[in-house]
Design a protein around this nucleic acid. Structure first.
Length: 559
DNA sequence: GGCAATCCTG
DNA sequence: CAGGATTGCC
């Protein structure tokens, strides 16, 4: 493959969000502005640095809630900078913008469907006129207008006959709606549709202040006078809602929805986790789109090595002034959908917590115990829809065409959401590899944060640490290999050793950590690789490799 | 001795 | 990638 081809262009359509930096955390923790500018290299040892990062991390909760307060956004109107809209302080806050900005195409479709049901055949009352009807003339007159309008233009004769036929017509139309939606959903990727459905349905009830909803509200008001149609509409909405819920829950059970979405090659959304180098001091990007701030813990996770002073030829750990920014790519067509997916996840997680508090920990322990513990890497996330405590058809969670979801299933939904993976999956491995681009030595705290869907145990922690140990091993082996190769080839100046995206070394690394090649490897990683390569080169050229522990100095430096 | 990381091997 | 051995630090 031509490196120049894949280096940039390929990333524009599908990149990765490390789901470990899930909205739940992203919204909950913010970089402490005071601590953010501290140069960790000034601290005497790594423990201080770690404590600093962690204290910043813990302290950042308050800062986060204030920073992420949507009321601030509302004061600025439609700011070009869209932050992740979930305030840490409002456990059940559902940002109108986030939910409202779901798939507009589908929304428009639903709007058209609703409009079509009310305006055709022969209905001319637009949203505006309907609102005016409600405002000025009251419900009864509005109904009269609609009925007269409808009957008058449909030519069905008497009003009674017209109603019967209208009901028939509506039924047929609703059937068609189902068909259209089903067909559409089948065409859509399985990752995108659940959010849409959920978002559409959910936002129907949440976005009371939106203009669209006002229009629909008036439509619903119109229906309220007609029990038959109410029933039909209720069925449609219930169907949509149940399907959306089941799908969104299903997506929750996927250990890394966004990772999977992108790695599996189904998503068009480009979510990039990038370093914040070059961003402004506030940690905000000016990309003009929504962005999510990564908790300060990331600064620890991204304890990348930078060259503080090339003149001194001394490499030190340098605390990054800002956390990396998770932002939405400008070119993404599916941004709202992804954001809403985050919203769904966020909401679902809150629901799970809510369910936990209501059902009690004992029951959840039972649920968890019902899951088989897997010590090895599993190909799929642990999912156990059937439990001792709640007996519901397991296919419930899979079937997109359920006519309805009952109360028990709702309970199940919330119950299952609480369950965590008790084993690491292949997707966790993929995720860990991608994390390696940012951190070579993740602390257990970082691991817990990034693998928040995993129930941590000593075994899990050890396994993750072992993974990173293996990653490092491979990394250093490559470094040594290419350093020696450079010496053999007669490279005399260390400055001639560079790691570019086109270089063979990078391709080897990329092949190992990012085999699918759908992740934009951060430039910082290339810098680290280059620094390490040069260190190996220098050590070997100076004959330090005669010392059995010659690598340790490099390891220590890179730590 | 405990722990963490690397080294070695399969 | 995982398991066990080894090393080094506290």
């Amino acid at each position: 493959m031509n490196p120049s081809v894949w280096s940039e262009g390929m990333y524009s359509s599908s990149s990765i969000c490390l789901d470990g930096f899930h909205a739940e955390h992203l919204s909950s923790f913010q970089l402490d502005p005071v601590l953010s500018n501290v140069d960790v290299s000034a601290h005497k040892n790594s423990e201080d640095r770690k404590m600093l990062s962690e204290s910043a991390y813990y302290r950042s909760g308050d800062a986060g809630s204030s920073l992420m307060n949507p009321s601030k956004d509302s004061t600025t109107g439609h700011s070009p900078i869209r932050r992740h809209p979930f305030p840490a302080s409002s456990s059940c806050g559902h940002d109108e913008w986030n939910l409202n900005s779901g798939h507009q195409a589908k929304r428009a479709r639903v709007e058209n469907i609703i409009k079509g049901m009310t305006s055709s055949p022969g209905m001319h009352c637009t949203n505006v006129t309907r609102n005016q009807c409600v405002k000025t003339d009251g419900m009864q007159e509005k109904e009269t207008i609609h009925e007269q309008d409808y009957v008058g233009t449909s030519g069905f004769g008497s009003q009674r006959t017209g109603k019967q036929l209208e009901n028939q017509h509506l039924r047929a139309r609703l059937d068609h709606v189902d068909e259209v939606i089903d067909t559409k959903d089948e065409d859509e990727s399985p990752e995108t549709s659940p959010r849409d459905a959920f978002t559409d349905s959910y936002s129907e009830f949440q976005t009371s202040s939106s203009r669209e909803y006002q229009g629909r509200k008036s439509v619903m008001s119109y229906f309220q006078s007609q029990p038959e149609r109410i029933k039909l509409m209720a069925e449609v909405l219930k169907y949509e809602l149940s399907r959306a819920v089941s799908r969104s829950v299903d997506s929750i059970f996927k250990s890394m929805p966004l990772i999977q979405t992108n790695i599996e090659g189904n998503a068009e959304t480009d979510i990039r986790l990038q370093s914040s180098v070059g961003e402004d001091e506030s940690g905000l990007t000016c990309c003009g789109n929504a962005e999510v701030q990564v908790p300060d813990v990331q600064t620890e996770a991204l304890s990348l090595v930078v060259q503080k002073s090339r003149l001194e030829n001394k490499f030190v750990l340098h605390h990054r002034p800002q956390p990396p920014i998770l932002f939405w790519n400008h070119d993404s067509k599916d941004q709202p959908s992804e954001r809403n997916h985050e919203a769904v996840c966020q909401h679902a997680l809150r629901c799970s917590q809510d369910a936990c508090s209501r059902v009690g920990p004992a029951k959840f322990d039972t649920l968890r115990n019902s899951i088989k513990v897997r010590s090895k890497v599993n190909s799929r996330s642990v999912r156990s829809p059937q439990t001792h405590t709640v007996s519901v058809d397991p296919t419930l969670m899979e079937s997109p065409g359920l006519p309805h979801v009952n109360i028990e299933s709702d309970c199940l939904v919330k119950t299952n959401l609480y369950m965590l993976n008790e084993g690491l999956t292949t997707n966790h491995l993929k995720k860990a590899k991608l994390m390696f681009f940012y951190t070579r030595y993740p602390s257990s705290l970082v691991l817990k944060m990034c693998f928040h869907d995993v129930q941590f145990s000593r075994c899990i922690t050890s396994q993750l640490i072992k993974w990173f140990s293996n990653f490092r091993e491979f990394f250093y082996i490559q470094m040594e290999k290419f350093a020696r190769h450079a010496l053999i080839e007669g490279v005399s100046d260390v400055r001639g050793l560079t790691v570019e995206r086109q270089s063979e070394l990078f391709r080897a690394l990329n092949m190992h950590y990012n085999k699918a090649n759908d992740f934009q490897v951060p430039d910082r990683f290339l810098e680290v690789a280059e620094i390490t390569l040069r260190e190996f080169y220098i050590s070997i050229s100076m004959g330090k490799d005669r010392d059995p522990s010659w690598k340790k100095a490099i390891y220590k430096m890179m730590h």
